[in-house]
Amino acid sequence: MSGTTRHDRTHWGVYLLLMLGAALTLVPFAWLISGAFKRNEDFFTSTFLPRGEGALGIAWDKLTLDNFRVLLDTSGIVRSMLNSVFLSSVTAILATLVCAAAGFALAKHEFRGRRVVTGIVLAAVIVPPTLLLAPGYQLLFKLNLLDTFSGLIIPAIAPAFGVYLFRQAAASSVPNELLEAARLDGCGELRIFFTVVMPLLRPMAGAFMLITFLGVWNNFINPQIVLQSESKLPLAVAVSQLRGVYYQDYGLQIAGTLASVVPVLALFMLLQREFVSGLTSGAVKE
């Protein structure tokens, strides 16, 4: 490139540091993947794949699917996977609709009480969630919602920070003229929300849905407290129990972990751009 000055060309030291960092970041992943396919007797004899006579100096014949076979047979992992998918997707969809509607109302409707509600939403963002664990548990007990999926889903569909994010998004990407035009055409308010507003909020809705899905998939403390039945546990709780029950079976623990991590990793690598933009949008105030 003719326009490049010496300053623009990146120093090799920068690449060296970045590569070192990237390698350190990837090591636990490589260890996780190789560990899941190792037999327990080989688990600690090699750092990654067992060494041997095969191609690339690796004993390919020592690799096994046994960990996954045992995982499928002895633990309710399939059930837990379905539970996780169900809890995460239902919560993500409902939370997105609930927060988008509320955020839009706060950004684009003028009504008595708007400032109060907005103030409450902003204040709620800073309340540490652990403060609600004990009284929340007591409430679920009184409402007879302990050990139910509803007891996990309903409290999670109205996060204040979601309303805050959608309020920002609606303020900047929903033009008032469009709303007025729709009203002049005799469009009802709910129809306006679903057919005019939601399409405009799609980037934020996508990012927020992903963030919520990931948050529920990886959540541990709430299902740990609310659920008791083995058949209802999501992956985060079920897999953590492998560590206690099969404490010497490292291959099994690691296979369970890999099975829990890969689906979200694949999904999010696919949608990375949207996810990252959603994460940071709350930080930028302008």
Partner: peptide
């Protein structure tokens, strides 16, 4: 209208 939109959030 705004209360209708805020309703599900405020209830939960």
């Amino acid at each position: 209208a705004p209360w209708l939109l805020l309703g599900p959030f405020l209830a939960c």
